[in-house]
Write a protein that binds this DNA or RNA. Sequence first.
DNA 1: CTGAAAGCGCTAACAG
DNA 2: CTGTTAGCGCTTTCAG
Lengths: 367, 367
Amino acid sequence: MTDTAPRPTLEAVAARAGVSRATVSRVVNGGDGVREPLVERVRRAVEELGYVPNQAARSLVTRRHDAVAVVIAEPEARVFADPFFALQLRGISKELTAHDNQLVLLLTEGRDDHARVARYLAGGHVDGALVFSLHLDDPLPGLIQGAGVPTVFGGRPGWSDGRAAATGPTVYVDSDNRGGARDAVRHLASLGRTRIAHITGPLDQTSAADRLDGYRDVMGDADPGLVAESDFTPAGGERAMRALLDRRPGLDALFAANDLTAAGALRVLRERGLRVPEDVAVVGFDDMLPVAEQTDPPLTTVRQDIEEMGRLMARLLLRRLDRPGGGTGPRATDEDGPGGTPAPPDGPDEAGAGVVLPTTLVRRTSA
Amino acid sequence: MTDTAPRPTLEAVAARAGVSRATVSRVVNGGDGVREPLVERVRRAVEELGYVPNQAARSLVTRRHDAVAVVIAEPEARVFADPFFALQLRGISKELTAHDNQLVLLLTEGRDDHARVARYLAGGHVDGALVFSLHLDDPLPGLIQGAGVPTVFGGRPGWSDGRAAATGPTVYVDSDNRGGARDAVRHLASLGRTRIAHITGPLDQTSAADRLDGYRDVMGDADPGLVAESDFTPAGGERAMRALLDRRPGLDALFAANDLTAAGALRVLRERGLRVPEDVAVVGFDDMLPVAEQTDPPLTTVRQDIEEMGRLMARLLLRRLDRPGGGTGPRATDEDGPGGTPAPPDGPDEAGAGVVLPTTLVRRTSA
DNA sequence: CTGAAAGCGCTAACAG
DNA sequence: CTGTTAGCGCTTTCAG
């Protein structure tokens, strides 16, 4: 039961190699400007002693942590119903790993956690943050933005960029939800469908709102009765589909805000004896493989590369961290209330530095 | 664009409160043994300055990090096809948060990453690790066990406990896969079914192997033709179901190793014109809501409380960290090869300190 | 009960 | 190119 394995220090390595601590430090950090023979000696000593640098000591002086926080704020359990975040995380993790950065995961449950997260971020434990801001009314993004930590958002945040002047531009990565939705609806139209319905996601999320906008871009002011609001879940999809069918029995196509919703809708369609795609053509959004490929019939859908979004978020953040002055400025000088006008998103404003990834329509058999 | 927000230090707080750094430190760390008036003064100073302790400096001296790593090793993308890890993570996160610990997520892709993870863990960046060891032949758990970091495994690791003497007992948390499988099969039998088939998961995972064992516990040496190996995916479930049906057209029940597999099997059953549960009764495993509730018909299945498993893992680890000597001992003195005999699981051996959570049968309409 | 002093292990000027 | 010298911000004996 021997305990306290005393890890070797720089000092020990220096002694063993017969050089100074500074030299060892240089070698350990890339070895620039150290003559070859010495580098070799030090390397060997490091090897023999099994030396591993103490990150805490290093951070104390460099003020870098080589770690970034990933904040996922989702009160409902919905997050876990689809692999969305998992894929995103995977992309983030890959990119971070490639740059020797660590991923600190902050999951929040409701408001109580907000203060905790804000404190953590403000505490300078990490060099930056990647945050998923799902809801329009979520105060968390604001808090974070005020914490003075370089941040990249996942998904277009739902606020206007009024505070940009104070905290720097809001940078985010998003899919082209609006464009993808347009493609989906146009595809349906190209099939000769005219009474194209839409089941939305929760409209307090920009992704859902943007998809609805895309639908409208193509449909103009078609019958509003063809639109039903829902919540991205299969059960919600069923409900909405039923409502739609009761209201507009003659509809001949459906654009569902995501694949899960489409799956629910498909069940209702079958249950009502409607054939897909003959009677009603259906297209989804996401191309979540386990869902889209397994529905009956397989789903035509708009694919977004979720993993790539994650990777890109990380890349953007890392780039910012490398550049000096990449911070979001100093902490708020004072407690300034929510002064900015949280205007609704009305059009593609490029105020913040947003990167929008393209989507592609994947044709299967449902449309 | 002012940068470098100079965060206040202990020193600053001390000055402001008119006390010494030591006193401030005491207050910040609980305030024991400091007289009330002083505590109050210090608290106020902390508040006014917005002081947040520098974790790096603290770790440097305490050698604690209040952070634990969660290692998820899954080469395939399968991990992300179901919400399993997400739920587990959620449970872990909750428990960790409740004890002011941070969660560092380490995702690995293939062997190349193993060294990186081992190095990270050995580097003393975290106080402990929670690792998910899915495959029998995965070398990672061994590496980790050798890194000298207190560890708790998720799922029963697939090795015998030969190395226990050197590194301490292997502690893990698992569901009662075997018992749950027994319940499932017994339920089917109680329905009067006699030709009960089983579609397994990948048998190099202990969870799948244990479920098969449970099936056998009840079925004795029934017709081996009633067992088909698969891989936990819907597509695999379809394939296996077809094979089973071709081989044993008379089967009247199915126990699928997980819900996803059951969903695939259900589709094949319908496609062959077999009614569920009239012709073939089906029970799954997991009770993954988005799956089990959405199948047609809704799935009778064995529920395991995944989130609770995560919470428990974290709790176990934290408890171990609190006790002195809770480590796994010093790093391996030398490179000792994989000497232990990785014996197959043949019975509930309590060699390692394993905690096995109960499962419950959830009746819906498929059986 | 409180303050003074001594580092924790490392990097970053600055000399040589 | 290499070594010396100062700390980074905090906790922790040890006196008082």
